[in-house]
Every structure is written in C-alpha cells, then in structure tokens.
Simulated scan of single mutants.
Amino acid sequence: MRFKDVFSIIGPVMVGPSSSHTAGAARIGRVARQLLGDVPEQAIITLHGSFAETYAGHGTDLALIGGLLDFATDDARIPGAFAEADAAGMQVQLRRGTGTTPHPNYAEITATRGGKTVEVRGASIGGGNIEIHKINGFDAGCTGYYPTLVIAHDDEVGVLAAITGALGTAGMNIGFMHVDRKARSGAALTVVECDRKPDPQLREAIAGLPHVGSVSIIDLN
C-alpha cells in the first residue's frame, strides 16, 4: 500500500510496544468484530510467522483480543484484554498456524455469535497499517484506512450497477472497490472503500437491493 503520511510509518497513538505487532493486530481484530456486529461469544485466533513467534513479548494476543472487543489502538484496557474478554462472555482460543502466508505478521480470526460466523485473514504490514486478504473465504484486498462497505450478494447482472448507483445517489465517492465471487451466478463479495463513513440510510438502501444478502461497515477511525 502507499503510505499516506508520517504516521503511516511510525504508527498511530497506541498501547503496546510495536506498531506492527500491537497496533496493527488490534485493527485486524476490530475488522472481525465490526463484521460480526457484536462481541463474539467464541473466537479462534490463529497466529502465523512473526506473530506466532513473538506474540507474548509484543502483546499481539492482547491486541487481537482487544480488537475483537472493539478497542482502538490507544485503549488502556488492551493490557487486560483476557479479563475484559471473560467479563464480556467471550471465549478465546489461540493457535499456532502452519504453512506459508502472504506476510510474516499474519493472523486468522474466526468469530462467532449466535448463528453468525465471520472469518477474517489479514496482515499487519508496519506502522499500524493492515491488509485484509480474506473475508469469509473471499478475496478482500482492503486496508481499513478508509471507511469500508462489505457487501455479500449474488453474482447477478445489475447488482454492481445498483450498488454504485446507491453510492452515487448518496454522494459517496469510491476510493477502492474489489469484487470476488465463488462461481458464475454464485455467491459474491464486494468491498468498497469510501471517502467518508456511510450513514445508516445508505446501508439500509444497499441492503434492500435485489440479490444483496448483507451489508457491513468497517470504520477503524
């Protein structure tokens, strides 16, 4: 990704010793939390590469759990994330991953509440910046740098035109857009980074479009 300013290199205001191992980890956790829409009842966190080797010293596990509780990078509750998770009724399981990944600082999160499950795979690439590679098995390619719409829908003619039309009607500018699908006329996922946070009315408008299943908003600001 292109760095936007000096804070993209030195990192955000944060709790923890490392912008990549702590601040970035918290942001990955927040992506999963915001996609789920509530505190997970259960969360499985799989650490890869450098995350798996150094998580204890850098507090990567605390940051990921804090993110799942929707704690920002500078939230003073992050050091007590395990106790905060217990108080919130969230069961957490940490695992060490195997195999190769796109980046050394890589985590997989499976978060569940009720009948809903969200799977997120992402990397912390430095300076607190992240790349979300997968959402529920679909390629995502988003960074969380801008407010982001995540839209699950059917791969049908006219769906993307309807989505972009709704964005245009709301006066929303698209900074980035990525579409992935399982198969022709199958399930699809569209990720749209916007210049400002979509309001609830826009979310409802897109959710009400034909062939749209769900609409989530990621806002890490």
Rank of each mutant, 00 (worst) to 15 (best):
I135F: 06
I109C: 11
G144F: 00
L94D: 12
T60K: 10
A188H: 04
G122S: 05
A123S: 15
A140G: 12
V31P: 00
E131A: 14
K116Y: 08
H211Y: 08
A187V: 08
G126W: 02
A52F: 02
G171L: 01
V215L: 01
A183Q: 14
T101Y: 00
G137N: 11
Q93V: 15
P12S: 12
E53N: 13
G57E: 13
Y55K: 10
I151G: 01
I135K: 07
T117C: 10
A83F: 02
S124I: 01
L62P: 00
V215P: 01
P102M: 09
A162C: 07
Y106N: 03
G37D: 08
V39N: 03
V150P: 01
I109R: 08
G24C: 06
E119Q: 15
I206P: 00
Q42G: 07
P40Y: 06
Q34R: 13
E193Q: 14
V157P: 02
M1Y: 04
R95Y: 08
D61E: 10
R33W: 04
L47E: 04
V192P: 05
K134S: 15
A25T: 13
A76L: 12
K197N: 09
N136L: 06
I135R: 05
M172C: 11
V150C: 11
F176H: 13
T148V: 07
T46P: 06
L202G: 06
R113T: 12
N173D: 15
G24R: 01
